[in-house]
Design a protein around this nucleic acid. Structure first.
Length: 741
DNA sequence: GGCTCATATTTTTTT
DNA sequence: AATATGAGCC
């Protein structure tokens, strides 16, 4: 293969980017402009044309999935997988995790067998930290403390660097300090530590940094707009010497500010490297013009950005559909009907559809509808396999074996299945360990091995502890001779964990199956050690490795849609309070900070621009959220989309009437003129309908009111319909009293 | 110490 | 709606 083959099919700007000389290169690209393609071609180009050895290249992506895809594409370009041997492609976190493991000598007290704490582990550690400090977890909630810790870690601030100028700040500082020390004692790092500790390692050990600079003279970063301070600093350290940084990104697609991403890093990059070549990729190869017009309508309302004129050669394409559904079930049904219709016409296969939503909770109604319709679907993310209790339990056993100091894992499994080690005993153990200045796991082994006279346990709890310690001891002895899957099987056998799970319920059965599936995963690590297995499992939390080839509609959040594209896209829940999310609306109302709303806008922009051909946007009149059903107004963003892009739209820009049935029309008009969530204190209007009244409903006909509840402006009426329909709960606006003359 | 039931609290998005 | 914590009882 020659280099001209690698450049085949690229446009002028793309070629310019791929063949750019060495030194800093920044590719600013719009959606669908092939920026990931440019990145992969660049790698292939460096290897093929410049003779760069693949092990001299480090490419950093945002998700594991993107990394895999990129790898496949490069192999496709080079035609031989052997040509990329040693190429390092992965996420920031995975890359850092590996560096920290390899350089453990420079990062005491962490050893190379350190544990990675995921969100749930962090929460457990934080709860413990708050308890240790005698702080009220109701006043300082573990979650809020964790998000603050995460925020400062992303800015590379240690406990000594955060302000402690008032009482609350001082509390936070102490919590942060103690939380960190708990992690340190457990030989554990959280996700943010992976980045921060790597930066600190390089800062404190220039010789180590230099080794990595020499090792990776070519650094490429995808989705650069989503880097946070720590990641930006890390990149800066690695390229400081050779300056071969190739970064691609789109500030309009920055949707991770909530975890510290700062799209201003794009500007910062140009300041820090004044000789940066900036290359713009503007032409869109994914969508047709109407979709781009809709996308621009949404994003152009964001202030302070460089406006991009998105254009496509594809000027003809199906116009968009904006549909109002009554509730989430109708919304789902509309989607199902549309999918069936489009596939019946032979235009699309089942794998061509994507259904996107703001929050994972919204997937439920959709899943139920798909199940009812008997259509298989692919669900991305959501109930993550590795977040399941039973999977976490089994992994906690393995992690404890891997690292007996891990207090969070120990706490998780010490009484699992219940073996008589209750809270009281655990507290005593912790206190005793503290006295001995060791971790609880070590104390446990000490109890077994030394059988000390002065251990503060009753006879019974001492013997149960010793029995568990024996288990742990025997596992530790076999740790280095068994493969991960053998070790896992041994644990299951020794603890009878599967028996404990299998309580006869269907739920228990599926839990057993999940554990068996985990065992299946582990068996893929036969030649590898436990450390590698646990590290990958902590960092590859994607479920989408399975079912990748099944041809079925994909359900996913707008966030996880980034980087993907689909012929037909449904964006659901386009309502105030959902998109934009109520939290973001609150942020604006409370502090006049519109950045959260701007991010929601970008999120919708990302969703719209995933579409190749057909885009359906949906909002509902009524939606159940947090167990409460409430009415919503259409999203403010919808009003920014030019009406001309729609083939069909239910949205009345100026409130004018449509041809819908009158009762329904009254209701929607009402919906637009009322606030979505009346405060609890708002006056409840008197009920309009009393029991016994005869009423008429569009669908069910005549019925008799049996009861009515009013709350705020909403009145719901129970109506008994003769003739099979039975009793229904109906919005008052749907009903008209029937004159009894 | 452990189990069951009742109450509270929660959900934004991900490595 | 689903899960986490807490009280009360065995």
């Amino acid at each position: 293969m020659t280099s001209s083959d690698i450049l085949a099919g690229l446009n002028e700007q793309q070629v310019e980017a791929v063949t750019a000389g060495e030194g800093p290169v920044l590719v600013l690209a719009g959606p669908g402009s092939g920026k990931t393609r440019v990145l992969t071609h660049r790698i292939a180009y460096l290897i093929e044309k410049h003779g760069v050895r693949p092990w001299h290249i480090m490419a950093v992506t945002f998700t594991n999935k993107a990394a895999r895809e990129m790898e496949n594409r490069i192999v496709g370009l080079l035609g031989d997988s052997g040509k990329i041997d040693g190429l390092s492609i992965g996420t920031f976190h995975a890359t850092c995790a590996r560096i920290l493991r390899r350089e453990a000598d420079f990062t005491p007290p962490f050893s190379s067998s350190y544990t990675i704490f995921d969100t749930a582990d962090q929460l457990a550690a934080m709860k413990r930290a708050l308890a240790d400090l005698n702080l009220d977890p109701k006043k300082n909630t573990p979650n809020s403390m964790l998000s603050r810790v995460s925020a400062v870690k992303n800015e590379l601030l240690g406990p000594g660097d955060v302000a402690a100028n008032d009482y609350r700040a001082e509390i936070f500082q102490r919590v942060y300090e103690h939380y960190n020390s708990l992690l340190r004692a457990s030989n554990a790092r959280d996700f943010d530590d992976l980045l921060m500790h790597t930066v600190l390692l390089f800062r404190n050990h220039p010789d180590v940094l230099e080794r990595y600079q020499r090792r990776y003279p070519f650094i490429l970063v995808d989705e650069f707009q989503d880097t946070n301070i720590a990641q930006y600093t890390l990149v800066g350290q690695l390229v400081a010497h050779h300056r071969n940084l190739f970064a691609v990104g789109d500030p309009d697609q920055s949707i991770y500010a909530f975890r510290g991403a700062d799209h201003r890093n794009v500007q910062r990059f140009r300041q820090d490297f004044p000789d940066t070549q900036t290359i713009l990729l503007e032409q869109n190869y994914r969508s047709h013009q109407a979709i781009l017009d809709a996308a621009m309508g949404v994003i152009d309302r964001n202030p302070g950005r460089i406006r991009k004129q998105l254009f496509s050669k594809d000027t003809e394409g199906p116009l968009l559909v904006l549909k109002e559904a009554y509730n989430e079930d109708n919304e789902a049904q509309f989607i199902i009907d549309t999918i069936i219709d489009l596939t019946n016409r032979g235009e699309y296969g089942m794998g061509d559809f994507a259904i996107m939503y703001r929050t994972n909770a919204q997937s439920r109604a959709l899943e139920e509808a798909f199940l009812r319709a008997g259509i298989p679907y692919r669900l991305v993310g959501a109930t993550r396999f590795y977040a399941r209790r039973e999977v976490k339990d089994v992994l906690a056993f393995l992690r404890l074996i891997h690292n007996p100091s891990d207090i969070v894992s120990l706490q998780r499994v010490i009484n699992l299945p219940p073996r008589g080690i209750g809270q009281k005993t655990q507290q005593t153990l912790d206190a005793w360990a503290q006295e001995l200045d060791v971790t609880s796991g070590e104390a446990l082994l000490y109890l077994l091995d030394e059988d000390p006279e002065d251990a503060p346990f009753s006879g019974r709890s001492r013997s149960t502890l010793a029995r568990f310690a024996e288990l742990l001891r025997s596992w530790l002895e076999q740790r280095d001779t068994l493969t991960p899957v053998e070790l896992l099987s041994l644990v299951l056998e020794d603890t009878a964990y599967l028996n404990y799970l299998d309580d006869g319920s269907a739920d228990g059965q599926s839990r057993v199956e999940n554990v068996l599936e985990l065992r299946g995963v582990a068996s893929g690590y036969d030649g590898l050690d436990l450390t590698t297995f646990l590290e990958e499992v902590s960092l590859v939390a994607d479920t989408d490795t399975r079912d990748d080839d099944t041809q079925a509609p994909t359900l996913l959040t707008l966030h996880s849609a980034k980087g993907l594209e689909f012929p037909v896209v449904f964006i659901t829940g386009l309502e105030e309070g959902v998109l934009p999310h109520s939290r973001s609306i609150e942020a604006v109302e409370e502090s006049a900070d519109s950045s959260a709303i701007q991010e929601e806008r970008r999120l919708l922009y990302v969703g719209i621009t995933r579409t190749e051909q057909r885009l359906y946007m949906l909002y509902t009149f009524r939606r159940s959220l947090y167990g409460y059903s409430d009415t919503n107004r259409p999203s403010r963003f919808l009003y920014d989309i030019p009406e001309s892009v729609f083939e069909y739209s239910d949205l009345r820009q100026r409130g004018q009437a449509t041809t819908d049935a009158r009762a329904y029309r009254e209701m929607t008009t009402w919906a637009q003129t009322t606030t979505p969530r009346p405060p609890r204190s708002s006056k409840t209007k008197p009920a309009r309908f009393k029991a016994g009244t005869v009423v008429w409903h569009k669908k069910y006909g005549e019925g008799v009111v049996v009861g009515s509840r009013a709350r705020g402006d909403i009145e719901e009426v129970n109506v008994l319909f003769p003739g099979g329909s039975g009793e229904k709960t109906i919005m008052a606006d749907f009903l008209k009293p029937v004159d009894q003359d």
